[in-house]
Design a binder for these strands. Sequence first.
RNA 1: GGCCCCAUAGUUCAAUGGAUAGAACGGAAGUUUCCUAAACUUUAAAUCCAAGUUCGAUUCUUGGUGGGGCUACCA
Length: 597
Amino acid sequence: MSIELQLKNKVLEALQQMYGQVVDPESIQIQKTRKDFVGDYTLVVFPLLKISKKPPEQTATEIGEYIKKNIDDISEFNVIKGFLNLTLNNNFWLSFLNSVGQKKDYGYIINKEKPNIVLVEYSSPNTNKPLHLGHIRNNLLGYSVAKIIASQGDKVIKVNLVNDRGIHICKSMLAWQKWGNGITPEKAGKKGDHLVGDFYVKFDQEYKKQIDELIQKGISEEEAKKNAPLIIEAQEMLRKWEAKDETTIGLWKEMNSWVLKGFDITYKNLGIDFDKIYFESDTYKLGKEIVLKGIEKGVFLKKDDGSVWVDLTEEGLDQKLLLRADGTSVYITQDIGTAHQRFADFNADELIYVVGNEQNYHFQVLKLIMNKLGYSFSEYLFHLSYGMVELPEGKMKSREGTVVDADDLMDEMIHTAEEMSKELGKLDEYSEAERIQINRTIGLGALKYFILKVDPKKNMTFDPKESIDFNGNTGPFIQYTYARIVSLTKKAQARNSITPNKIKTDITATNKELQLIKQIHSYPEILFDASETLSPAIVANFVYDLAKEYNQFYHDHPILNEVDENISLFRLFLSQQIGKIIQSGMNLLGIDVPERM
RNA sequence: GGCCCCAUAGUUCAAUGGAUAGAACGGAAGUUUCCUAAACUUUAAAUCCAAGUUCGAUUCUUGGUGGGGCUACCA
């Protein structure tokens, strides 16, 4: 039983014994004592005054005395206003630390009785242009959330849904046909996704020119957009694609393969992966059948022109199109199909979509539709909606060339790490290969941490020049702390081959040391919270706080140089447990930690 | 117009309804015969406004203000 629960039960017992009342356990508030007060756990007594019918101080004192008498681990207590601060003895914390040392995956839930099967969909790129900063947030969030959920004992399946069909794909294809001169990624010496992206941009430029020309001739902008020859050609190409025209399909396959190869490299560099990849070109027709059945059931309505709609006005929304008049599917149709498919494929209990908040409405609608169709899993569809990544100048706009490319950004970060370590002379003695490895770890660590430390639902500003730092609340700060601990361990081993796997519990620990142990103590609940709220930011901030606290400890506590051997061993042991947790927490964020830096 | 999200130091981020709102960057001033100074110490600086619920509100409710998003036979 956790100490919090023990305390709570004792308080309930005390209230019954002393005031003769059974109270709602909800009204017992046990929380961690704030740092600037003496104590480990605090009972807020204000809600209990009705029962005790005594002033706060007196109530708190009476409960405190009862608890001290009845729980051995409580060594003392103090009362400040309506707060009862309880202190646990050294022995409790040191024994606890020993127990952490025994565990391999401290904080994880290993054998959950009924693990849920959770699908996490993330990334979901379009195959017409390379990945950018927005995708990076998406990928990092999805990957981390998947790991965090898995740490709590559930079975997680990571899936990607590649958007590989549609008018936007045809635009790149058409531009390549017209202006590509048969170029390939090999000939151009360029990643395939970037090459295809160039043609997407080219299309847009030429399209714009045509629109301007038409406007000059006195045609309205709206008409010009619809009638520019290029867009008509692109639409024609889409029709050919849907009709399975051989040359169109051929080109489509080739260009898509270029892009996908490029994505693979980006994913690999980012350090993320998937268990299953769905292609929209395979799944886009799945939903149509379900929608047609829905009409029979009377869930959807068919208009005179043949288009199919769902009426969500009763739910406070509008009508939403599900099938076009010509019978073709739209975006949400496909999602209806894939949701059905996935629950069937994996017997899933829950499906989490990591998708930007501009699609909040889309997922609200999707959930309602699945519900109307009678799918019981509709309540287990969860949209992990994250905020936009903005630049200091505002939103990224591909047309204005202000998009921050994913590959470039990673390169830049690694390069910055390289310059920093060169400047500091940190890696001078290491081999070229080691330097590359370490700089990579640090550069990517900085990027990933910077993005993941922010609450997912919030918009965030990303300043490519200034925002990424290697000091303060950053990935490298945490990595550095880890490297120091590894270094300590190695030195200890060199001096003395015995590494402690247990410490004495009768040592007097300093406040800072106790503070660190308490932070370790809260790791499991941090992981639980992060998993419940799907927020890697909680883990990120926890690891930072731990590292910060450790650095302070490191600064003014001799460890290997401590003369008292028992204390020295204790500090080393404590350091190692903290190293373990830093590694564990960073791993859940998808961030590597270096052995040295 | 309708719906959703956000608002905290100059900047970027924290805070299950609890005590004196925490960090970091930037600013100012310091620490190295000592286990990695990518570290540590000191310092100034903030809850958008107004009501309400509560013993207690940054947190919950309502209304305003400001910012963002969605509201396509696009994805």
